[in-house]
Simulated scan of single mutants.
Amino acid sequence: MKHIKTYYKRTLDINGNHIIVEGPVDSKTLKQYTFDSGLVAFRMPSKQFIAIQEIADLEEGRIIICRDKNNIIGYTTYLYPDPLERWSDGQLPYLLELGAIEISADYRAMGLGKAMLELSMLDDMMEDYIIITTEYYWHWDLKNSGLDVFEYKKIMQKMMAAGGMEVFSTDDPEITSHPANCLMARIGNRITNDQIQAFDNIRFQNRFFL
């Protein structure tokens, strides 16, 4: 499956700052910018910056960023699912995972997550994909948000809905291990019934699941 990446860019005026939302960007572009020290959700910022550069150069990889001048303050990643997770079963070339979405603490509650997701879906090629995201409460910044897991879940689901994502049921053990976890997906409008069936077969691998 050929992965064509069409670049988009938007400028948001937030509190007098001009925030750029753009992508997909390649590693060469990323290296021109700095990576905010508040982007700490997954690993040390310096290491995470290297990780998203590597994703950007994957054939299927897509990195959407938001930046304040030349400082990256948020990012979203799209790539094939981790080979160690069930979502890679069948190696479906039309299944992409929204692997991470992060915004630096000083820039939250500004609608930047929603803006990145909306920009991601401007590309018509996304209609050829099923985009999934696995939401696990242990990845959420509950401490600094002051929210409980279910309040945070509502916020995450509302944000993901901006990118056309909907909740899908599954018997995946990691998802079902806690009621705050969930699977969300966006089915592109050129996805066939056979492709949807293959996705359903991955979602449900326990035939006794009700």
Rank of each mutant, 00 (worst) to 15 (best):
R67Y: 06
A185Y: 02
G188N: 10
L98C: 14
F209M: 02
V21K: 05
W87Y: 14
W138T: 09
G74A: 11
G74H: 05
G74W: 02
Q197E: 15
L92V: 01
R43M: 15
Y129P: 01
P83K: 10
T34E: 10
S177H: 11
D148M: 03
G90Y: 12
Q195L: 08
F168L: 11
H139L: 13
T11V: 13
N193G: 02
M110Q: 10
F204G: 07
A180V: 06
W138D: 13
K31I: 10
L122K: 15
K158M: 09
I73W: 08
A162N: 11
L39I: 13
E135T: 03
E151M: 07
N181E: 03
S177Y: 09
E118Y: 01
P173S: 12
A198Q: 14
T76I: 05
Y75L: 12
F208Y: 15
S104Q: 04
M156L: 13
I20S: 14
N193C: 03
L183I: 06
S88Y: 15
S120G: 06
P81K: 10
Q195V: 08
I4P: 01
L39V: 09
L183D: 04
S145K: 01
I19K: 10
R108Y: 06
L112P: 00
R190I: 08
A100R: 13
V40M: 07
K28H: 12
R207Y: 13
L142H: 07
L92G: 00
